[in-house]
């Protein structure tokens, strides 16, 4: 009887072909949710057998902003807040491309907030994947537009007094055709939503609530990254197609997850092309 032994080098991680292996190891902290999100995204690309020649991964500044450097596709690391404006340019110049913006809550909703609402309003074909960790991680844990009421950060050491955005509600109100929220715990459901969004035309938005064990969760005494994931399991409920305005997000009580919006409306570059064709006929 012959016994064949296989060494670890014989096994190849299924998403490796989507990753720039020369960029590894990545910079993310252990127990950060960004890794889960990027893996879910790679898995979605894989299960769709997505045409990587059409994919453009675009990110802004911050921890999640580093995402664009890790994908084996065309990518661009823009300045703070400008990822969506850049993606709009990419899409308009070559409507055949599929821009995917992967960035954080601070980048997309504070300094880049204006671009978000207007790209959603125009319904520019892109997927915006937002990792929401409730603070600016890269610069050391300052409060931002999603920091919950009374949360502790380095710029709100006495508790945050500002009202945070409910991102899915902002996206829906601004006109996104697909809106979903998951936590970093919901890796499988997130992957399914990503698959759906990648196949859909128009402005799609997926928020992923993520632990930040190094800064936000440490300042707020939420325990380890694992503790935060356990907490997500306790408090998250799935309510597909609930009113995004009512999709609450509160670490003390409940995080409502699910796909809230899935609708159709004419896409911006299609409208541009048809208007241009119309005008040329005159």
């Amino acid at each position: 009887m012959t016994v064949t032994t296989r060494s670890s080098s014989d096994y190849r991680h299924p998403i490796l072909e989507y990753i720039r292996q020369d960029r590894l190891p990545h910079i993310f902290c252990s127990a950060c949710g960004i890794g889960t999100v990027l893996q879910a995204f790679a898995n979605a690309l894989r299960s769709l057998n997505f045409d990587m020649d059409r994919l453009v991964v675009i990110s802004g500044i911050g921890c999640t902003g580093r995402a664009s450097g890790y994908f084996e596709s065309d990518s661009y690391h823009t300045t703070h807040g400008r990822a969506i404006a850049f993606a709009t340019g990419v899409k308009v110049a070559n409507p055949n491309l599929k821009p995917v913006v992967i960035s954080g809550d601070g980048d997309l909703f504070a300094i880049g907030g204006n671009h978000f609402i207007h790209a959603a309003r125009r319904n520019v074909d892109m997927l915006v994947l937002c990792v929401n960790n409730f603070n600016y991680g890269m610069t050391g844990g300052q409060m931002g537009p999603t920091t919950p009421d009374s949360a502790i950060t380095v710029t709100s050491p006495d508790g945050n007094i500002e009202h945070p955005f409910n991102l899915v509600s902002v996206a829906a109100a601004s006109g996104a055709v697909f809106v979903a929220r998951w936590t970093a715990l919901h890796a499988r459901r997130l992957t399914k939503s990503l698959e759906k969004a990648l196949q859909k035309k128009g402005f799609k938005f997926i928020e992923v609530v993520s632990p930040c064990p190094t800064l936000y969760d440490r300042y707020n005494r939420h325990g380890s990254g694992l503790d935060v994931m356990k907490r997500y399991r306790e408090i998250s409920v799935i309510r597909n197609f609930t009113d995004p305005m009512k999709a609450e997000i509160d670490y003390r009580t409940r995080i409502v997850c699910g796909e809230f919006v899935d609708t159709e409306k004419p896409e911006f570059t299609d409208l541009l092309a048809s208007q241009a064709a119309e005008l040329q006929k005159r």
Binding site: G81, A110, I111, G113, Q142, M143, G144, P145, T155, S156, E162
Partner: peptide, 8 residues
């Protein structure tokens, strides 16, 4: 009065 604004 310290304001943590959304951009520079």
């Amino acid at each position: 009065e310290f304001v943590r604004v959304e951009s520079e």
